[in-house]
Design a protein around this nucleic acid. Structure first.
Lengths: 329, 329
DNA sequence: ACCCTGTAATAATTCGAATTAGCAGGTTGA
DNA sequence: TCAACCTGCTAATTCGAATTATTACAGGGT
C-alpha cells in the first residue's frame, strides 16, 4: 500500500525542513516568522503537485481543530425506514456544515452493543471530530452525563434535561406548540380535552404533555391524559377534542370515528402533535403543527460552532408552526 | 475546563511507568510481555476509579490508520430531491462501513465552483480519509485522472473509462441488462427497435447504447438510435419496441401512445433502462430492469477495503435484475 | 576587526499512546 | 562460580504536524 505523504516528504522534495513546510502551509506571517518568497513558492509548488494534505489526526493531536463535525445517531441514518425522520435534520446539518466549511463525520463505526450504537465504548471515536451533533428521539442518560462530564463539545438536537449539568441543545418548543393548539380549540368552544400518548420518557413527550396541562389549567377546562385508549372511552367521557402525540394514533382515531358514523371535526376534533415516527395513512389531513426539523439541524451546527469558539452552553427552542388541516372544528 | 487524564497520570497514580499502563490497558500477554498480577490489578483499579479512556487521536496517530472512509459527491446528498438517487447507494455504503468498523466522512466542505463541488481545490481535503468512494452520474475526467495519477485510494460507484490508467469501480452491467431486454423483445417477435436517449457522455449512457447495438446486431434485427423524438416519427418508421434511457421519457411515450389510441404493449412496447434521474409518473408500470444501488454501495466499500489493504485496482459490474412491467408484449 | 541588526531557516520539543530494546535482580544448571 | 535464563518492568523511540528557541549568514556602521 502506498504510504501517505508527510511534511517530511514534502520538505525533502523542496529541499527545506519540515518546520518550513509547516510554516508555509499555515501561511504564518506573524511574530518573527519570515519565509523568503521564492522558498515559499517552491514549497507551495511541491504541495500543489503532490496534492498533499496535512494528516488530520496528527494535526488534531497537537491543536484542537479538524474542521470536522461529527454526527452521532444510535441507528443507521440512511435506511429508508428511518429516512423520513432523520433526513430533514441532516439536510439542515449538511447545509450549515457546508456554509461554515466543515466536513461531516458520520459515526457509523460505533459498535452496536445489543442492537444500539453506543457513544462511549472502549474505542470511542467521538473525539476525532472538533465537536459533535447528537441526533435521536431519546439519548442515553449516562452517555449524556459522560459527555458533559468529559467536556466533549456537542449539541443535542432536541431539548434535554440536565445531566450532571446543563445540556447544550437546539429543540422544538413543543410545550408552546401544544398550548397554541389547545388555545385554538378552546376558542372554538371545546371544553373537554384528552391527551393520548406516552407523555413521559423522552423530553419531547414530556414537553408536549406539560404544554397540554398548562393550557387546560390556564383556561380552566377539563383535560385527561391516557397512554392509549379506544375511541369509545373518549366519546363516553364526553371528550370533544383529542390531542394525539403520534400522527398514526391520531389518524387511527379519525378513521375509527368515521367508521362509527361520527363526523370529524363535527362530533370530534383530532389534533396531532407532530411526531411521525411510524408511517401514517396520508388520506387524513390532520390539524397540528410543523416541527422545523431542517432549521433545527441548521441551528444545531451554528450552536456547535459557538460551543467550539466560546465554550458556551447554548440552549434554544424553535417555534413550531400551526398546520391547518381538516380535523379541528 | 478540566484537562483530560493521560496515561502518564494513571501511571503516576499507580506508581508505574506509562508503558506499563499501556500494556495493561491493551491486555498484552503475547511475546515476552509480562505484568505481575498485583501490578496489573493496581493499574486496573486506578483506571476503574478514574474512568480513564485512551485518547483515540493519539492511538490513531500511532496506528497509521484513521478508520475513516470518505464519500465524495458533487452535490449535497440529503436534500429530498436528490435523496431518491443517492439514498440507496448510501444505505449500502453505511451498512458496509459499519461492518468494517469505519466512520464515514462526507466532504461537505468542498467549495462549490459554479454550483458544483470540486474534488481538487486549493486545500483539498480528500486525503483526510484513508480512502474514498466517489458517487455521481458522471465524474469530471480531469479529477479522475488526477486521482489515478496521485494514487489516491478510491473506488468509483459506476463504471468509468480509463483515465490515465484503469479506474477502480463497482458498476452496474448496463450493457448486459439492455441486451437481455432486447433478447426478450426479439423472442416476442419484435424486429424494429429504437433507442431513445443520449447514449453518450456518461459511461452509464454509453454502456446502455452499446448493449443495444450489440444485441440488435447479434439478432440481425433493425435498430435506430435517436437522442429524442416524437412518437409520430417512431410509429412512421415502423418501430414496435422502444427502449428509453430515461424513465420519464419512457413514461411520456406510453402516455402519448395512449392518447393517440395506440395500445401499449399491443401496438407498441416501451422499455425503460432504469435511470430515474427525473421524476416520472407512477401510474405507468414500465418494464425494464432494477439497478442494484444498495448492493453497489456495499461492494464499493468492500472494494475500497481491498484497495487499502492490497493496493489492487478492483473493477466489478453487478447484474441488473429484469423487472416485469406491463409495457412489453 | 568587531559589534549590531535583520533576515531566513532549522533543531528541538510537544501532544498521547504503542512498541521495542533492554536493564535489574533473581534462579537454575553444569 | 559463572554463564545462561527468567521475570517484571521501564527508558527511549515512534507516529505527523505545530511551535518555540536558536543558529547561520549577510551587510552596514564604527
Amino acid at each position: 500500500m502506498a504510504k501517505r505523504l508527510t511534511q517530511q516528504d514534502i520538505a525533502r522534495m523542496a529541499g527545506v525542513s519540515q518546520a518550513t513546510v509547516s510554516l508555509v502551509l499555515n501561511n504564518r506571517t506573524d511574530s518573527g516568522v519570515r519565509i523568503a518568497e521564492d522558498t515559499r513558492a517552491r514549497v507551495l509548488e511541491v504541495i500543489r503537485r503532490t496534492g498533499y494534505v496535512a494528516n488530520p489526526i496528527a494535526r488534531r493531536l497537537h491543536d484542537q481543530r479538524n474542521r470536522i463535525l461529527g454526527v452521532f445517531t444510535y441507528e443507521a441514518v440512511f435506511p429508508s425506514t428511518r429516512a423520513d425522520f432523520y433526513q430533514p435534520f441532516l439536510e439542515g446539518i449538511e447545509e450549515q456544515a457546508e456554509a461554515v466549511g466543515c466536513d461531516l463525520l458520520l459515526f457509523t463505526s460505533a459498535k452496536a452493543t445489543g442492537g444500539k450504537r453506543r457513544i462511549f465504548s472502549d474505542d470511542s471515536r467521538i473525539r476525532l471530530a472538533d465537536g459533535c451533533v447528537l441526533l435521536g428521539r431519546s439519548i442515553d442518560r449516562d452517555d449524556l452525563a459522560q459527555l458533559v462530564a468529559e467536556a466533549v463539545p456537542f449539541v443535542s438536537i432536541g431539548r434535554r434535561d440536565d445531566a450532571g449539568g446543563p445540556v447544550p441543545h437546539v429543540g422544538a418548543d413543543y410545550a408552546a406548540a401544544v398550548r397554541d393548539l389547545v388555545d385554538r380549540a378552546v376558542a372554538l368552544g371545546h371544553r373537554e380535552f384528552a391527551y393520548v400518548g406516552a407523555g413521559t420518557g423522552a423530553e419531547s413527550s414530556a414537553d408536549r404533555l406539560r404544554g397540554f396541562k398548562e393550557a387546560v389549567a390556564a383556561h380552566g377546562v377539563h383535560g385527561v391524559h391516557v397512554q392509549f385508549t379506544g375511541l369509545g372511552q373518549l366519546v363516553e367521557a364526553g371528550v370533544t377534542c383529542v390531542l394525539a402525540e403520534e400522527v398514526s394514533d391520531g389518524a387511527a382515531l379519525v378513521l375509527a370515528a368515521r367508521e362509527r358514523g361520527l363526523s370529524v371535526p363535527g362530533d370530534l376534533s383530532v389534533l396531532t402533535l407532530g411526531a411521525a415516527t411510524r408511517p401514517a395513512p396520508d388520506d387524513v389531513r390532520l390539524t397540528g403543527f410543523h416541527i422545523p426539523r431542517r432549521e433545527m439541524g441548521r441551528r444545531a451546527v451554528q450552536a456547535l460552532t459557538e460551543v467550539l469558539e466560546h465554550g458556551t452552553t447554548p440552549q434554544e427552542l424553535l417555534a413550531c408552526e400551526f398546520v391547518e388541516g381538516t380535523t379541528l372544528g
